[in-house]
Design a protein around this nucleic acid. Sequence first.
DNA 1: GTCTATAATTTGATAGAC
DNA 2: GTCTATCAAATTATAGAC
Lengths: 197, 197
Amino acid sequence: MVVNAYLLIDNKFMENQTYTAKAAEILDAAERHMRAGGYDAVSFRDLADEVGIKSSSVHYHFPQKPDLGEAVVRRYTDTVLGALGAPDDAGEDAYARIERLCAVYRTALSQDGLICLCCVLGAETRDLPDQVASAVNQFFERVLAWTGTALKNATGQGGTPAQILASLQGGMILAMATKQPALFDETVTGILERLAG
Amino acid sequence: MVVNAYLLIDNKFMENQTYTAKAAEILDAAERHMRAGGYDAVSFRDLADEVGIKSSSVHYHFPQKPDLGEAVVRRYTDTVLGALGAPDDAGEDAYARIERLCAVYRTALSQDGLICLCCVLGAETRDLPDQVASAVNQFFERVLAWTGTALKNATGQGGTPAQILASLQGGMILAMATKQPALFDETVTGILERLAG
DNA sequence: GTCTATAATTTGATAGAC
DNA sequence: GTCTATCAAATTATAGAC
């Protein structure tokens, strides 16, 4: 079985990498572990057990660990940007768009109980294989670009894309580390209040 | 050689854990690795090599890895709170205090090229040994409390302690992951602008 | 406090059969 | 695509000598 997905990004269609069902299962498990404990929290044997194959078979799908890491980050990036949708829809104002950005992050936190993948990996960027660090970098560049476009013609003093994204990422860490999800909501409230002006 | 340190916290003197010079060296190396790549980026052998002893000798100073992790976090917490100083000095206003908070974070980033320890560990809280996760939690509780006190009688709409801390933590991740230190400065600018009103 | 020696486990990775 | 078998390396940890 093959899963295909298309996402509209930067005014052109980008075809997602196509994965077999088993490869997608592996990516799911790997993403879960990475979002919980970082890049080193993923082991081929654990993944193999979770998806019901042997670790050598995981190497068939993803030859080296950096390949797996990069694939997880790229798929995650496409998923997030897909969930964000168009940043320049005519029928929306900046407030509605940023509200959606916050909601996407909020959902990830409350639904999975896990924080943003690139928040975890971004924090350990210095020790990541170049392949993976580069993919994480691209995640942020793309989400920053999305936010920049979304803010066009914003009325209030909403802040810059970096300021908004930083609040979201930091809010997640605070919520996770203190076990107080309300602290994330508090940062979202701040973002939206400033945007409303 | 023995290093002693006293810090004024929560209106009472708290004596720092006392470490021999070698134990302090180990903690230095461990902190560096953790801030670069997280808890798993620390290995007893690497630490031993760096401080010029054998890995079994590291176990003499810190029996188990969680003991080492907890010690690193506690010492880091005391250092940061020591650098922050009193949050209720009469001769200062809220702006000056929060400016100092931002400067402490900024210095860590530019001086060591490493982000906040509890930013990295906080992101992987879910997979940390309880001992370590608890120490990280206490770091945030204490810095949040410091910020709350520092903001007393603030004039502008500076935001809550959680909003300010989230911006700082997230700004660090953004700066590190995109290799653009300016993005951290941008978040600091936002924090201080809002505080100035 | 530091060492040697070693155990026990985990991990990333490969060769080759089916 | 998945398996068995295996390897080399790394890791946490302990026992006991100096």
